[in-house]
Nucleic acid binder design. Structure first.
Lengths: 364, 364
DNA sequence: AACGCTAACGTTAGCGTTAACAATGCGATT
DNA sequence: AATCGCATTGTTAACGCTAACGTTAGCGTT
């Protein structure tokens, strides 16, 4: 006789419940899954046993047999980035409402992607959401091969046939600029991040064509809109800054300083993200000037911090919560086969909207 | 002959790898777990097969047999709360470095706790961390009964014998007040949240004694410190506000307005959290007054938003990243049995530190 | 009365992995 | 040469659960 059970078994299993309720394990299984027909009396007896033993189903066993574990892996670049909070919240909400769990995975460096992907596969999750990463076809293919349904949020590259959600950054930029123009501004500055052109030819990047880049899209939206209104924007009104999470606000300040130092500075600035905008705002205040009296400033993103500034920052807001909800709904639909077979993958574009604050005003 | 395999098997398993490498499954298992001795040649052969089949171990099967799934569940009240970001980051970092995954669970309402706990148990995680919740002994007992190791971060109630991490809120408050007194302030206001006394006697709360409440501790720290310096603080310098995440900044503004309207207002304010402080700051600026010229303001927490204000907010900073790291290290130690059997559970107290900013200054 | 039908429940096997033990082979030791 | 020891690999059963199918009893139908 082997001594497998040396570690005393402390947790009740289906077998224990079955024994206690004097039924077969299958009946217990049916009861706790609310399916098939089970007699009323039996049902009660089983439930009592479940209570008495405080039985909780073992999901490892479940997913082993069902090849589904009702979990969704979420890959994001940084938990700290205030942008993701609401996205996560949206995902979590929908997931929870559908009985799914969320596996959070930090993919802060591109080199880590492969191991993250393996991790995801190994965990046997049913669904996968990535947010604002730069996943390649190969990564996704591996996931798909393992039967994992994928949804991408604002992936840098366009990937064929993968369900995805994108923010309409170009549109957002145009909303911002239209707002400023509507207020009478004709000299408008732009602070943006890395446009993703002229990439260094490193090993990974050689064959990549960035068909999607947040900064370039916002830049293009800006240019298109000012052009549409026939405004002439001098080259030195457009400043590229460091958008890394650590530098953000600071580089916004530096950029604004440069703009204010121009012989003929802009009267309004569209900052490509909220932290730039906050930095710009602070730079103005630092000189003892006022917003929006001296400069109007508008941000893009809609993070909470925009509500904490004085004056409150006007910004273009991305519906982050909704994006998260959408993404989760999409994966779950994919997992549960709610989408018709032949149908092409969902490909949603979400439009941001203007949130008026106190940092923009009519030109004097 | 049954038709089990009707869904074509698309993912390679140990058996496939074993067959390809002409060895037993056990040998493959040994190879991928890098343990026991495996011959060099065999090792290579197996690894090749693993590569060729792009085999990824099935963690459901693993955890079924090992009763461990190298996952840690993290229960927090709100993903959006900027406070948790860095805590999560710390947890994630340590977890990942040790091969653990993080299961994120949103427990935004106290009524949801039981189902969250069941969820955690069902998922069969090895470890459990909760952050800033109000878990009861019963919740934890259920987890422990199922062999799940628990660590609590700033749980509202003290629970016997459970490893936990606490911030020294009282000390933090004293640091803040000492800082203000050091600058010459003698009329100091306090904005705080619900002290958790005089609780309504609802069904759940009848037998509860809150031995730990963030706001009360900070309040006590404030009182003790001003008393130590022999300062007289009139009752109307102390304002209780709504600290819910939605109201935070606004209620900080309202509170500061009330303070400024006093016939003899304080010269400095210790706001019990950063968002209160930001609100207070904005209230001052709104009146066209200046910080710290007219009022000094200090916050407590150290969220990123403190760096975005103008002037930058002086605050007492809780080492959130470190707290997360600690918590994760503690659970993993518990899980892997690195702690001696007889040893009492770890019970750590973390002290915050002052982060000087521009919102506090010497009294005129 | 023989039949079929169906609701209610039971049996069996298998999901992919690993712990425990067994077996093998080969050089070294006595 | 027989024995021992060790390194390496194999065999078996079990983890907890559920899909697929089998069985039973009670009912109505012809």
């Amino acid at each position: 006789m082997r001594l497998y059970k040396s570690v005393r078994k402390m947790v009740a299993t289906l077998v224990d419940v079955a024994r206690m309720a004097q039924v077969s394990t299958m009946t217990v299984s049916r009861v706790i899954n609310n399916k098939d027909l089970v007699g009323e009396a039996t049902y009660q007896r089983v439930m009592e046993a479940v209570e008495a033993l405080s039985y909780v189903p073992n999901s490892a066993a479940r997913s082993l047999v069902s090849r589904q574990n009702k979990a969704i892996a979420v890959l994001i670049a940084s938990v700290v980035n205030p942008y993701y909070g609401l996205v996560m919240e949206g995902i979590e909400n929908v997931a929870e409402a559908n009985g799914y769990s969320v596996l959070l995975i930090n993919a802060n460096q591109q080199e880590k992607y492969p191991s993250c992907i393996d991790n995801v596969i190994s965990r046997g999750v049913s669904g996968f959401i990535s947010s604002h990463l730069n996943l390649h076809q190969a990564h996704i293919d591996k996931l798909l091969k393992h039967g994992i349904k994928c949804v991408l949020i604002d992936n840098e590259q366009d990937l064929d046939g993968i369900a995805s959600i994108k923010s309409d950054h170009r549109f957002g930029a145009s909303v911002a600029v239209e707002h400023l123009i509507g207020l009478g501004h004709r000299r408008i500055g732009l602070i943006h991040g890395n446009l993703g052109m002229n990439l260094k030819d490193d090993d990974h990047g050689k064959e990549e064509k960035y068909s999607f880049n947040l900064w370039r899209l916002r830049y293009e939206g800006f240019i298109a809109t000012v052009r549409k209104h026939g405004l002439h924007i001098p080259q030195d009104y457009i400043i590229q800054s460091d958008a890394s999470i650590e530098a953000n606000v600071n580089s916004g300040m530096l950029a604004m300083d440069r703009l204010m130092d121009l012989p003929s500075p802009p009267t309004a600035v569209y900052a490509g993200n909220d932290l730039f905008a906050i930095g710009a705002l602070n730079a103005v205040l630092h000189r003892g000037l006022r917003v929006p009296r001296d400069y109007s400033i508008i941000g893009h993103g809609g993070i909470d911090a925009t509500k904490y500034t004085f004056p409150v920052l006007t910004c273009v807001k991305q519906p982050r919560f909704e994006i998260g909800c959408h993404a989760a709904t999409m994966v779950i639909d994919l997992i549960e086969g709610n989408t018709r077979e032949g149908q092409p993958p969902v490909f949603e574009v979400i439009r941001p909207s203007l949130v008026p604050g106190g940092s923009t005003g009519s030109i004097a």
